[in-house]
Design a protein around this nucleic acid. Sequence first.
DNA 1: CCCCTAGACTACAACGTTGTACTGCACCGC
DNA 2: GCGGTGCAGTACAACGTTGTAGTCTAGGGG
Lengths: 338, 338
Amino acid sequence: MAATLHDVANLAGVSIKTVSNVVNDYPHIRPETRQKVQAAIDELGYQPNLSARSLRSGRSGVIGLVLPELSLSYFAELADAVIANAEKQGVVVLIEQTGADRDREIAVLSSPRMRLTDGLIFSPLGMSQDDVGLLEVDFPMVLLGERIFGGPVDHVTMRNVEAAQAATRFLIDSGRRRIAVIGAHEGEVVGSAALRLRGYRDALQAAGIPYDPALVSHTTLWHRANGAASMRELIDGGVQFDAVFGLNDALTLGALRVLQEKGMRVPDDVAVMGFDNIDEAQYTVPSLSTIDPGREQIAERAVSLLVQRIREQARPSAPQEVLIDFSVVPRESAPARA
Amino acid sequence: MAATLHDVANLAGVSIKTVSNVVNDYPHIRPETRQKVQAAIDELGYQPNLSARSLRSGRSGVIGLVLPELSLSYFAELADAVIANAEKQGVVVLIEQTGADRDREIAVLSSPRMRLTDGLIFSPLGMSQDDVGLLEVDFPMVLLGERIFGGPVDHVTMRNVEAAQAATRFLIDSGRRRIAVIGAHEGEVVGSAALRLRGYRDALQAAGIPYDPALVSHTTLWHRANGAASMRELIDGGVQFDAVFGLNDALTLGALRVLQEKGMRVPDDVAVMGFDNIDEAQYTVPSLSTIDPGREQIAERAVSLLVQRIREQARPSAPQEVLIDFSVVPRESAPARA
DNA sequence: CCCCTAGACTACAACGTTGTACTGCACCGC
DNA sequence: GCGGTGCAGTACAACGTTGTAGTCTAGGGG
């Protein structure tokens, strides 16, 4: 049976509240009392009961992280960074997966399963701008990603349009003219796919290159398998291109694999550029040029914003929109100059 | 302000306990009472307070998953599977990372941060057989991995020796004779590295091939970067080999990359075999032959064992050792016959 | 010498649930 | 008509903590 404040109080010969005060570093305690209590705590191996503390204080010290899937390297690395930052702030992380399914994302927001968290870091992929109203929740929340903008909550995201534009310009600057895109989402207006596609088009336009829809391949999921399939379709469809811009790294690596299966040389015949800079991108053959979205900073900002919100819960201030800087990472698959 | 049982009881005109009974599906309730209560619940949007429930019942519905790092694809995919299985069982997962550091692993076992979990799935990499005593904890726990055997808790693991032996035999059968190993741990007796190395040696011996220590490269961490570095050392050291057995996929992919940088053809000059079957292994160039350790089954068994232990906590039965089946997955980097 | 303040500590009542023990009541069999 | 049984519902006391209000003592100022 785990020891309680009661047991410690008995052993130390003080009141239960004094023990509580010692545990919580209340200042007005005589050093000798503190020592006596501490000795009793050590002897009994007392550990505070977090459920009780949480019931009484309304804080559990747990934050929720809601994301599509840990199997997607980007989210795994993001989760890693979130957990590491949470630890620094003294909170612990509960992870829920939604499989990028809109209904499940919405369900999580009102689910009792998440009720014991103090707040949520929420990274939707299925919800869209129309669902912005659903973000009106009565607990602190930080939104990630680019599915929804201008919501009632803090939002940490990156300059998707600019980053995709930079990636595309990078390919153009190295002499490419027919740049295929992998991972577009039909009819999407907002969201990573739409924003990154917009950046691509902006870059083309700026360079005076006409936009050719035949170069743009669509796929809903952003897994390696989808990138591979899209690339097969492009090639088998006889589309000619001298570069590929994959809207995320996983897609791009699937595509990279197929390019080589089909006997195309990378980067000689086709330059390849991804987006996310997952760890894996450094070790593929050829290594993958990509966009570094500042994942570590995203995690750091998201956690500290959330923790701050939880602390100030009484007097909420206006929601913040935080934009994280990106950078272009040139590697072998698309060297700086052709 | 969130509604409580009290509010619902008032609105429905019944006692608070009756509401509790409705929420908990207590059988002896008149249908009309149930309906009345349900209506009140819906109207107020009542959600049970999990801290209170947990304080009263001693169960939080949260399990902890302790692993080295989510950035390691194997653990990310494992976590994915654990969370998915936990959801099926109606529990939620809190993840803690230890960075494979022994001290942090030990700390987690007695940390109050984990105090609100009902039990732990614990996957150590830093602790060793000598630490077996530390697994004597007063909460349900399922151990994963191959650092510690014969402990006082349930253990889900795989046949490492046999799997590594199968992998090595596979290479031998395809005509390879000088098989390098990447990722060995100096002086280790138990643990993935030691067990897999033992399987390697067993297979060599069975085939009458002498063991050559020069072929075995050591590295503590199992990241892509370490695999790459080891491979560079081997090659630069002038060691001759016609196959590589990487003790996990990440290492192996790092090595695969360096092999190709150095102009060696895979599998023509060097056959390459990994271990873990992470998703990525299908899409590399060449695709990676590897061992599938049955990750999904490991997760499924671990979660259901833990949930079962939590339920039966009163009368604990003897700890179980569960061995999961593996399979050899031949791909391009090491085809079935040379 | 008395009042006031601050420090060190304590008693008590919550927080929102659920387990236990209980009260009625209707129905059954003899 | 009486005791037993099973159903429907309730009252009350926990679970372990912390916030609030309080007591008591010592010390300082007037």
